[in-house]
């Protein structure tokens, strides 16, 4: 379990990182927090020629709020997101999800951009940015490009980011004050990859869902919007029948992957359970406001 030989270049600036990415193409790999990359290197599952370390590129991290948009630099570490008052106040979904992101040691090094760039199907942040309608900003030597979260996640570890592009920031509209959000995840041990999980953002009035986004993760090859479940619920007064209709619709929204954690059937069952629980919680939270 020793990494094969690779070149290592510490980029001193964003520009240098972009130039290296452009020159190296597929042979270059960005080293951000390293929490996923280093184990795959040590197990020789990936053998990049050159690691481009962006940890010293200071203008890639930080969290700001401008005109109702929260801007998170891609190199911002999970722990900074978890501790940020801006996030707590404006993006309660992400604040809630952060409790499920691995463990302290991983959150201290791992970055939000790294998580979104890798697009692990069981990761929390990709689901959150899709639920929140975020825009992902990538940059190459040819300039910046904004990609809507809906268009970004293409499949298992596949994204719309080109090989010469660096994910530089995440733009997320602040959650509206009359919105509620709920984040649920099932993992046998706290901090593990999710068996099933759900990011829910809603506007509720009089026990009726007026707006709703349900994004499922852990069961699919990418974070997945539950369009049928949403349609079954929006405009309806929340009830046991409505809950059942959402669960039934989910069977068409999702196509879970069987893996060591369980069968596709179990994962679909769990996502149905989480749907009911998340919507119950959303109603409860809306009433508590």
């Amino acid at each position: 379990m020793k990494a094969p030989k690779f070149n290592y270049i510490r980029a001193e600036s964003r520009q240098q990182a972009l130039e290296l990415l452009d020159q190296l193409g597929e042979d270059g790999r960005i080293l951000a927090g390293g929490q996923s990359l280093m184990p795959t290197l040590n197990m020789r599952l990936s053998q990049p020629g050159t690691l481009i370390d962006i940890n010293k590129v200071t203008d890639l991290s930080g969290i700001t709020l401008e005109d109702g948009i929260v801007r998170i630099g891609a190199m911002t570490r999970h722990v900074e997101v978890a501790n940020s008052p801006i996030i707590a106040e404006n993006l309660p979904l992400i604040a809630e999800a952060m409790q499920h992101v691995a463990h302290h040691a991983v959150r201290n090094r791992g970055t939000i951009g790294g998580s979104i760039a890798l697009a692990d199907p069981a990761a929390e942040m990709p689901a959150c940015v899709l639920a929140l309608g975020a825009t992902l900003v990538v940059e190459s030597i040819n300039g910046r490009r904004e990609i809507a979260a809906e268009d970004y996640f293409k499949g298992l570890y596949e994204t719309a980011r080109a090989a010469n592009e660096l994910l530089v920031e995440i733009l997320i509209p602040a959650e509206k004050s009359d919105n509620v959000s709920v984040f649920l995840e099932l993992a046998q041990r706290h901090g593990d990859f999710a068996m099933a999980g759900l990011a829910c953002v809603a506007r509720v009035s009089n026990k009726t869902f007026e707006e709703l986004r349900l994004v499922y993760f852990g069961s699919e090859d990418r974070p997945t919007l539950g369009a049928g479940a949403i349609a079954a619920v929006v405009g309806q007064t929340w009830s046991a029948e409505c809950k059942e209709a959402a669960a039934n619709a989910l069977a068409d929204d999702l196509d879970p992957m069987t893996n060591l954690q369980g069968s596709a059937a179990m994962k679909l069952h769990l996502q149905k359970v989480l749907t009911g629980r998340a919507l119950d919680a959303a109603i409860e939270r809306a009433e508590a406001v």
Binding site: P39, M43, Q188, R189, H190, G191, D192, F193, L260
Partner: peptide, 29 residues
């Protein structure tokens, strides 16, 4: 009782030879 199992597939390949996949109990649970 709850977590641990060395899982083999039908070809005799051990499927979960990492601590991410072979779950050992942790203090929190």
């Amino acid at each position: 009782a709850l977590y641990e199992e060395c899982v083999y597939d039908s070809a005799g390949q051990l499927q979960n030879a990492t601590l991410a996949d072979y779950l050992v109990p942790m203090a929190g649970e």
